[in-house]
Design a protein around this nucleic acid. Structure first.
Lengths: 204, 204
DNA sequence: GGACAAACTGGAACGTGTTCCTATTATGTC
DNA sequence: GACATAATAGGAACACGTTCCAGTTTGTCC
């Protein structure tokens, strides 16, 4: 079967091999998202994922070397989807702060609509070690891009400071998310906390 | 043996019962810190902690209902110690930003001196659910206090904004810590990231 | 089509967090 | 000091992530 060097039209940077392999990978990620939506991090059990995706346990581990890799990859796919949806929509709001808050509100609403999924993905994000750095970095980039685009809709000048601010907002967002999924903070508190941070960072 | 309502001079808010119980608790936390320092999160194995503290496994679970509780409690104790050391020392620096950065630098240096311990404690912090909210909140308060005191050494006016800023700094600090302990960021990058955030938040 | 390699299946097995149970020991009460 | 109760010791047992292996299927090359 062998991993070919490259095919003509791969969807991502990494080539994933044959159609059967892409299909298995998709089935696995679908099963992961389904299980995570239903019961959160704990419900994403490797044996259950394998069975649900109609794949042997060993095969699952062949595609994703750990539960964390699996969940972070699933998170990445969902984030890509969300980013695509938001990409071409104009963001309402007169000031950068308003637009950033709006974007975060939309994203947060999406997450809060599926708390178990969010819990699973956030947990895995937090538990990820260096071996998933690439996947994590990808998610961080998408997040930063979302925020800087909200700051400058005309996609003109994005300064160093802008990026720094976007990263700080990302940090606050992550911390708030952790506090929320671990039940230490209500959704309303989470949203408000982020808004306060954005206003502090974007007061000019 | 029964938990007495209160004794004359308990060290913390919660009364921990007899001297033997306090001693066991101390031995357990000591063993936890020792193991964590040597091998990080993975090395803190409940059976190893129990053996090292000369306590049965069931007893360990009687004192700390989970590994995360155990580690977060250990983190709380270490934080209290650090806070006591810093409490009565004047913080060098002419501006709030300088002083806050200095405080965070001192704390970070302490953490980076024992990476395995930091990794273990940060991981547990990230994995903590609602049942450890109290311990987490305690650590958060200490952190916020440290920062606001650096902002206003005269411990005079601490405004709402000040607290909000301190919380945001705490969020950034936590995110940076996670990135560091998971090997996705170097100590230097971590320190610099935090400095940028502080300067952004405390530019006046 | 045949030979070979890679991938997949099905399942056993191991490590560690967690639970549970019984016998034994410490603690507080009269 | 005798008793009642709570705490502890010691260890078996279970769950789930992870690893490993033997046999089978799938894909590739001639």
């Amino acid at each position: 079967m062998g991993v070919r060097v490259s095919s003509t039209n791969s969807l991502t940077v990494e080539d994933l091999g044959s159609a059967a392999q892409r299909d298995r990978r998709k089935r696995i990620l679908d099963a992961t998202i389904t299980l995570a939506s239903q019961g959160g991090f704990d419900a994403v059990q490797m044996r259950a994922v394998a069975e649900s995706a109609d794949v042997a346990l060993g095969t699952l581990y062949r595609y994703f070397p750990s539960k964390v890799h699996l969940l972070v990859s699933a998170l990445g796919r969902e984030f890509d989807r969300a980013e695509k949806v938001l990409r071409d929509q104009p963001i309402p709001g007169d000031t950068p702060a308003e637009r950033v808050i709006e974007v975060l509100r939309v994203v947060s609403r999406g997450l809060q609509a599926d708390p178990q999924l969010t819990e699973a993905l956030t947990r895995s994000f937090m538990f990820a070690d260096a071996s998933v750095a690439q996947e994590i970095h990808h998610v961080g980039m998408v997040m930063t891009t979302l925020v800087t685009r909200a700051m400058h809709p005309e996609d003109a000048e994005v300064s160093e400071d802008d990026i720094a601010i976007a990263k700080v907002i990302g940090d606050v967002w992550l911390s708030a998310l952790v506090a929320w999924v671990t039940g230490r903070q209500t959704p309303a508190e989470t949203v408000q906390h982020i808004e306060v941070a954005v206003k502090l960072l974007l007061r000019d």
